[in-house]
């Protein structure tokens, strides 16, 4: 699904990622952990195609394609979804309209006709039910006036609507209370299949109690310094990031 080889990334001359290697296959959930400022969000942004970063080395192969040949929107249409850490507000654009536009753009990319209105509404209703979301969220403007929790739930809702093959969740758990965290995590668990891959970026181990990862990677100072299974997250939680610092 995704193969990252020796990825090096700079912003304004400062090296953030110093050679990342990561392999993720379909059906897997990977967690990326690490202290603040080590490049977790940068990695997510570079996979999604944010232009502010300069890629100075390495490559990312996704479904056999060189990601750097694809625009941001083409990557999205190829099935890459980024759940934002800070979802942006788009005043006056209803979530319904936004999702319909996005879904139809992605269908167009695949050579499909626009989704019939009725089918779209049904899909939306089913998704809301699946995620136990309030109906009012979809008629409001995208993220406008949403609470932190609502914004994150909204990201999961969009994920469910767009059915990506690679979903990257960038600190989706930050700023969530325990109830919202459960809703978000159970949403992700319901959406896991053999055919899709999740990369869950988180600061804390807490989220991983709900979304159980197959692999855990520790990102430190621009490099993945440790990889392991679920138990690595627990060990990390016990010993703290200081433990990593001492071992690098």
């Amino acid at each position: 699904m995704l193969s990252i080889k020796n990825l090096k990334v700079e912003i304004q001359g400062k090296e953030i990622l110093k050679g990342i290697n990561l392999e993720a296959r379909a059906g897997e959930v990977h967690a990326i952990m690490g202290p603040n400022g080590t490049g977790k969000s940068t990695l997510a942004s570079v996979i999604a195609g944010r232009e502010v970063f300069d890629v100075t080395g390495g490559k990312i192969i996704y479904k056999g394609k060189n990601l750097f040949d694809l625009s941001v929107e083409a990557r999205a249409c190829e099935g890459i979804f980024l759940g934002f850490q800070y979802p942006v507000e788009i005043p006056g654009v209803s979530l319904v309209n936004f999702m319909k536009t996005a879904l139809n753009e992605q269908r167009k990319y695949k050579g499909l006709d626009p989704i019939p209105a009725k089918e779209f509404l049904q899909k939306m209703e089913q998704t809301k039910k699946l995620l136990e979301m309030q109906t009012s969220l979809t008629t409001r403007s995208v993220n406008e006036g949403f609470s932190g929790g609502e914004k994150k739930k909204n990201e999961i809702f969009q994920l469910a609507m767009l059915e990506p093959t690679l979903a990257i969740l960038d600190e989706t758990d930050s700023g969530l209370d325990i109830d919202a965290l459960r809703v978000v995590a159970s949403g992700v668990n319901k959406l896991r299949t053999e055919n899709n891959t999740f990369i869950v970026i988180t600061h804390y181990q807490r989220l991983l109690e709900y979304i159980v990862p197959d692999f855990v990677h520790v990102l430190f100072d621009g490099r993945i310094v440790k990889s392991g299974g679920r138990e690595l997250a627990i060990e990390l939680e016990e010993k703290g990031y200081e433990w990593i610092r001492q071992h690098t």
């Binding site: 941001v72 929107e73 249409c77 934002f84 942006v88 996005a102 753009e105």
Partner: peptide
């Protein structure tokens, strides 16, 4: 940020 958000969802 708004443009990037839209593009990330597949909207050019």
């Amino acid at each position: 940020d708004q443009l990037f958000y839209c593009k990330q969802r597949g909207i050019d």
